[in-house]
Write a protein that binds this DNA or RNA. Sequence first.
DNA 1: TACGATACGGAACAGCGTTCCGTTTAGCAA
DNA 2: TTGCTAAACGGAACGCTGTTCCGTATCGTA
Lengths: 189, 189
Amino acid sequence: MAEQAAPRRADARRNEKALLDAAAAAFVAAGVEAPVRDIAARAGVGVGTVYRHFPTRADLVVAVYRHQVEACAEAGATLLAEEASPYAALARWIDLFVDFLVTKHGLAAALHSDGGQFDALHAYFLDRLLPVGTTLLDAAVASGEIRPGLRAYELMRGVGNLCIGADSDPGYDARRLVGLLIAGLRRAD
Amino acid sequence: MAEQAAPRRADARRNEKALLDAAAAAFVAAGVEAPVRDIAARAGVGVGTVYRHFPTRADLVVAVYRHQVEACAEAGATLLAEEASPYAALARWIDLFVDFLVTKHGLAAALHSDGGQFDALHAYFLDRLLPVGTTLLDAAVASGEIRPGLRAYELMRGVGNLCIGADSDPGYDARRLVGLLIAGLRRAD
DNA sequence: TACGATACGGAACAGCGTTCCGTTTAGCAA
DNA sequence: TTGCTAAACGGAACGCTGTTCCGTATCGTA
């Protein structure tokens, strides 16, 4: 678990850091689909260097957002322990997830893009967040607050989809629609 | 309303028909983002001819799916008249919309793509379907079945988003999630 | 200081959308 | 039938992507 400082050359470590900073800036300015050349230019390196450090675009995106995804994953257990009910915890956790997605230009769209470009990104999100979602969903089913039968994968996929384009369209409030979706989960009495 | 046979050259009319058929086939085989060159090759014409008949890709997509969008739009009034309640009519109409989207490879994604590539497509869908959605939504609010405050644009945008990737992912059932969203619309008693 | 492994940079290639213009052809008039 | 012109065609060419590849530069060390 400790941050293993890989015994690589100093310039390689420097460039990796520069690339992470440049990518973060480029993602904010132009979305996660920012041209590789732009990112390379921002970092002051050649495109070859980008691909050497991050073989696929997904690797770069994962590296940039890893901390925030980890934080979201870890928040699950905390919420379940602290909120008034499992359903409330689930709702709050989904809010965190939505806030993360809508503030990252184009990330939600990339997450579900058809091309195999972002498969590793998709896989990473699933690996880290799906177990948390499953735990929260199971708890809410067990407490009788929501109807059973929906898998966490579908829920999170649906929530992710609802976040697509939430930036860049002032007339569309993803949070509100996600709220309706979560409301629809409640057990019909 | 009558089909005005434009007084153009015979080869132009022939090629337009061939392009529509070719595009429909290409969309089925490779989605609505099928390369222009592929469509041109299927139709046996040059790429220049594609752009002459359909200046933007959106024009081509609209032309291919126009009939089905019209049918969906027209179904709104029928459902409102025939279903047991406005909410039931709304639900059935949304089902029609979802069925249309999920069976058209990549159409939902294109509808909300960030690039200005499909703006005209977006606009066409809005022009034809938004009034219908507004009517159904208003009726369901008036009948007291659903909570007020959600604009038809947001609802349809959300539904469209939920349909993204519904093909090509067997583990994701867009219809179910749309159902939950519609359920979430019900007035909380 | 010299050397080898490591890493770099950017030219080069492939696939896409889009434009542009020389060539072909349909339709008509003589 | 022939000739003419406007309409339409085809595809080369351009620009912008991602991605690969290899000659060159640099780091770390002996």
